[in-house]
Amino acid sequence: MAEYELKTPLKDEDLAKLKAGDVVKLTGHIYTARDAAHKRLVDLLDKGEKLPFELQGAVVYYVGPSPAPPGRPIGSAGPTTSYRMDTYAPRLHGLGLKASVGKGKRNEEVRQALKDHTAVYFGATGGAGALLSKCITKAEVIAFDDLGPEAIRELTVENFPLLVINDSHGGELYVQPDRKAAGIE
């Protein structure tokens, strides 16, 4: 298990070396998007319109932060469950998206897209939203303000702690449940 410090935008050579289980401290700009924002992003693509951020080399964070209290850039900001974005992720990876950040399993299509496009899926600790917010120094809504917590924000992050869950070589960190030991097989 290696540890890397990476800066956005991410490049193929950054990602090709990552293996499931590696720790990455990410610095730069990342974009928040979850269910409703993803739907709007693909609607824009369908209409041939420009996306609100540059997808090439981008990192998307599946998060809907809580409101920023006075004196803070953002509220609590941990990952949401990723499988709900599986419908959209392969298409975005095909257009240059280099990484997503969330929690929970991805489907076969997403795992294949990571291999096809030298991309990775990062996990952040679910339910540690207060702690993770410490690594976010700035947050600015750049699209779909009407979606409230689901609006797309550009986050400036410093040493954001990530774990490689699915790498670009087919590796996966999540353990398979031991059904036999639990007596259901």
């Binding site: 809580s66 209290p69 609590s76 941990g78 600790t125 939203g129 702690l131």
Partner: peptide, 24 residues
């Protein structure tokens, strides 16, 4: 490490009044 982060998160939330998790 996950459990350590969750305990640190709880300490920070109590101190700052930030929610433990963004999904309230």
């Amino acid at each position: 490490e996950v459990l350590r982060q969750l305990l640190e998160n709880a300490d920070l939330a109590a101190e700052t009044k930030l929610p433990l998790c963004q999904d309230t």
